[in-house]
Design a protein around this nucleic acid. Sequence first.
DNA 1: TTGACTCGGATTGTCGACAATCCCACACCC
DNA 2: GGGTGTGGGATTGTCGACAATCCGAGTCAA
Lengths: 237, 237
Amino acid sequence: MAGDIRPIARESTAAIIARQLREAITSGVLEPGQQLGEAELAARFQVSRGPLREAMQRLVSEGLLRSERHRGLFVIELDPGDVYDIYATRAAIEHAAAVRIIRSHHTDAVAALEAAVEGIREAAERDEPRALSDADFRFHEVLVHESGSRRLSRVARTLFIETRMCLAALQHHYPDPASRVEEHAAIVEAIRHGDEAAAQSRIEAHMEDAVSRLAPGTSLRSGAAPTLSEGGMDIPG
Amino acid sequence: MAGDIRPIARESTAAIIARQLREAITSGVLEPGQQLGEAELAARFQVSRGPLREAMQRLVSEGLLRSERHRGLFVIELDPGDVYDIYATRAAIEHAAAVRIIRSHHTDAVAALEAAVEGIREAAERDEPRALSDADFRFHEVLVHESGSRRLSRVARTLFIETRMCLAALQHHYPDPASRVEEHAAIVEAIRHGDEAAAQSRIEAHMEDAVSRLAPGTSLRSGAAPTLSEGGMDIPG
DNA sequence: TTGACTCGGATTGTCGACAATCCCACACCC
DNA sequence: GGGTGTGGGATTGTCGACAATCCGAGTCAA
């Protein structure tokens, strides 16, 4: 597996830029609401505006950037309603991933998840907040990835980025490391036992936890988000 | 509500092209696997390659187009595994939408859903397959839309397009109109009664039905899709 | 006949420049 | 003083052309 050969022609320029931009947005270098000037960015990446615009378009369609015609591109701003929406949608996606793993009887997936939990445990013991956060994210990535669903993975990618934005932008209390390990382990436990209902409730509880820290006062179980999201799907007719 | 004023500056050119392209893909004008030449399309749309490429990028990130570097852009091809994946993901999304409607106690949403079911019933009685299909889609659009979730809507949009691709590309037996009305009505019924479990199982059964018609031999409950999807999320580290 | 090599055509990737549009500030009139 | 109209400046939207890359046909030698 070492020195694995990969296609020589790697990513397209637009893809590279898009990735770096995503990184910048999640890390908080690009603040929510900030305008992104094409000329400035093009100069910084040392490319023309063409590839850069393509990367932008991609991020816009992913929902990370907001485009105002003849005005410019802006990093999206997340209100409490968005935080709720992100975590509620994540709960749905990750629940679906868990169900698929359960129904496919993939022991490999369970093993991978247990390894991910172990990673969280180690990071918790080392008491490194950054490593702990990374391990946490990695668990959820593994969960979705092991579902084997291309579309769940595709959806989750954007949601994870948005989650990182939440963490970077909002003040929040870090959860107790021990309970963090516990919650994830409980999810894996439910999956291993093939208990779909338990998996659902534990994933929802896990997300509920996060929302309560990030946006106190809103709850996944309470129903509608405080701010009704506009700009939803247009329904013709 | 009549003569509603809308922003004069409408969609961007790239958005218009993207929409038309989506339409062409779903209607089967652009066949799966077909290569899309930039120059040719640009000439057809009477625009430069710039805006056209932006539209393409958008469709690529939505997963409708597949980009091969220095080769070109191709309409994605759907194998039975994809059909399974699409409907399983839809089940997850629409289940989540139903749950949100239930927990928010939105009577408006239930009313909208009942209207949508009525639309299906009318189309079924008029015995117009096209109208029936449209009404069917509209029901699911309403379901997701009424959840009030921007992200569920965003995800569902692509999934609905992919569903249309399935219907256009694959041979399939049309369902009995009566049972079609029945299945949708049952879902609404579960939502009105606030029965999350019933909503879930009925939505899953509904999708199961569709999959069994489109890709016989694969089942939502059987676990893994016949062909494991490649190109899932890359997990770093 | 098979294999490798080369050349040509076609397509995509990238760039710089021009045109259209918008926002803001300032002067102007009622 | 409040509202209106008009300029400047800056940004985005669009275009055509050039460069890089790839695929396939054709050629030649073993």
